[in-house]
Design a protein around this nucleic acid. Structure first.
Lengths: 344, 344
DNA sequence: TTGTACGCGTTATCAC
DNA sequence: GTGATAACGCGTACAA
């Protein structure tokens, strides 16, 4: 639970009775304008937020609907969600879910969740800048998964993004590539930032120069991948290998390569993110960086629940877990056209 | 809400006080064995089920964790879930989610949801036989999506499965195919049954004979698809076209066709289910039956909420909505090898 | 060992 | 128009 500013607090602050506050909040007609104003003032001043639990108990209606599915889970974020579910259920917790595509929506859901008095929050932030989450983390245990806002201190379960891209670079360098292109999303999320940095760092480790022209960012989508890959492969001295930081952009890269009449891996090598079904089914099957999606979700669930249990004891120091990715070598990577596997 | 058998009812029935019942239920040590037995008896007789809401309010702890994600949604069931979420949030409802891969798990989640006093339930049943769901639907509005148990009367939002497969058959017949194979899952779920029946019915409409050897069922997965397709294509007179009823089995069929050295659509035509990214990305791009996933979820949410609002007025007669699928013709279908497009 | 009384935060029914 | 008071279902001191 969190701050406990209740109806009676507001009533006391406004110098009225509890039912009056309730009436104002619910918009019941017969209320004196002056009292209404005073109540509304107190509400904002005290930062009152209704307790859905008590309301539900009283009204015999929760406004919660259960969604029970036997649907197949295949993508990264679903498998992750499945991990959270399993960890939660094992500890006797239930999960209330919201898909927040934008910061506004994210905030809306977070507030609704708070209304239902959730014990804690697991979140995949939609952006690097979410001031609301910072506030929430002040009085509610929060665990970030996959992505992190970074600017505030809370628990997190993340991929070792630098290491992940590092493995891809290592593999390509071993094959003899010296001109590797990176396709990444331009959204301000931690995964993209870290993967980009990991790429540059690993290039440096191998003593390879960084060619800014071989870095292409675009919208974090299939179309963005098409554009970025096309841009990279149509320049005068194109890279001999491409790495994409997301599954969506990988799909775009595949399309672009095909559209340009290039063959995989003969003309260009390609490594993407996430070991999805289609990556295996492509012709040729794609070399990918596999994320431990289920583990990430499961560990996030465990971490949050542990934080919940410990909250009484220690004030829970922020704990960040980094999980390793696994490079799965298939047939979209090969030595570059005019080069021997061992470059000096 | 539902049946309201509370602690005090049990106490009265057992001839003890409320706290005693509470103690027994929570396993507090100091309780007389005889009273314990009496209480437990009353609990089962009355069918008492704890109200998590009241417990949460009292304990200042809900055991609910919020999961907020900006993760991408790509598969059928995710888009469907997104539709439910949107419909719910628009009406001021929250969604608590559970993934039930088996009937046991499904029942477990349903009970947990009931504990949280959900107003209603939306469910994708995992099997045709779930006695518990029948019971639940007696006192809680239930909407089935995608699949239906069928044996009890409740609301449902389903695909027009017969029509969907019918479109696929029509398309293949127009191309000149007369020997069409069907690959379907052997799980006892309504979608599989209806799609199989729709296939047979449509064949009859075209005056085409049914060849039992061209019907292959297997486990509802990629591997199952591989086996079924291999079985179908390696017999003496194989079908010239294949239809799969699920996306998973489609993936298996693609693999089998490739493994057998067959070319798409030259050697065999193929139509599958769900317009997923990889179906578009395949070489050649796959002709598929696209389901209105988001609409199905959204309509299910609307239907449930309407049922909730109406529950006071009319006892809510069961309402079943059938949504149409759309055949998306791409390049995995073509006239059969030795046949003109127009067969007599 | 068991029962009484109260509180969790809110809404609904009454008098005033 | 407004404010006591009770109730929603459960857990927990405290007293018996």
């Amino acid at each position: 639970m969190s701050r406990t500013v209740k109806l009676s607090d507001v009533a006391h602050h406004a110098g009225v009775s509890v039912p009056t506050v309730s009436r104002v909040l619910r918009g019941v007609p017969n209320v004196a304008p002056e009292l209404k104003a005073k109540v509304e003032h107190s509400v904002t001043v005290l930062g009152y937020r209704p307790n859905r639990l008590a309301k539900s108990l009283r009204e015999q209606r929760t406004n919660i609907i259960g969604y029970l599915t036997a649907g197949t889970v295949a993508t990264f974020h679903n498998i992750l969600a499945q991990g959270i579910q399993d960890a939660a259920i094992e500890q006797g917790y239930a999960v209330i879910t919201g898909h927040g595509s934008s910061v506004e929506r994210e905030i809306m859901y977070a507030q609704i969740f708070e209304g239902y008095q959730v014990d804690g929050l697991i979140v995949v932030p939609s952006s690097d800048t979410d001031p609301y989450l910072e506030v929430v983390s002040g009085y509610l245990p929060v665990v970030e998964v996959d992505r992190t806002i970074g600017s505030f201190s809370c628990h997190a379960v993340l991929l070792d993004n630098r290491g992940a891209i590092g493995q891809a670079v290592d593999h390509l360098v071993e094959l003899g590539h010296r001109n590797i292109g990176l396709i990444y999303g331009d959204a301000p999320v931690s995964t993209e930032v870290e993967r980009r940095e990991g790429f540059l760092e690993r290039l440096a480790v191998h003593g390879l120069p960084v060619n800014p022209a071989h870095l292409a960012s675009d919208v974090f989508s299939e179309d963005g991948g098409v554009r970025a890959a096309t841009h990279l492969l149509t320049q005068k001295s194109p890279p001999t290998a491409l790495i994409t930081t997301t599954n969506e952009m990988l799909a775009g890269a595949v399309q672009a390569i095909r559209h340009l009449g290039l063959r995989l891996p003969h003309d260009v090598s390609l490594i993407g993110m996430d070991d999805t079904r289609w990556a295996r089914l492509m012709d040729p099957p794609l070399t990918v960086i596999a994320q431990p999606a289920y583990d990430m979700g499961y560990k996030a669930g465990q971490l949050l629940i542990k934080a919940l249990d410990d909250s009484a004891a220690h004030p829970a120091e922020p704990r960040v877990q980094r999980l390793s990715a696994q490079l799965i070598v298939r047939s979209s990577t090969a030595p570059p056209k005019e080069a021997s596997p061992m470059t000096s």
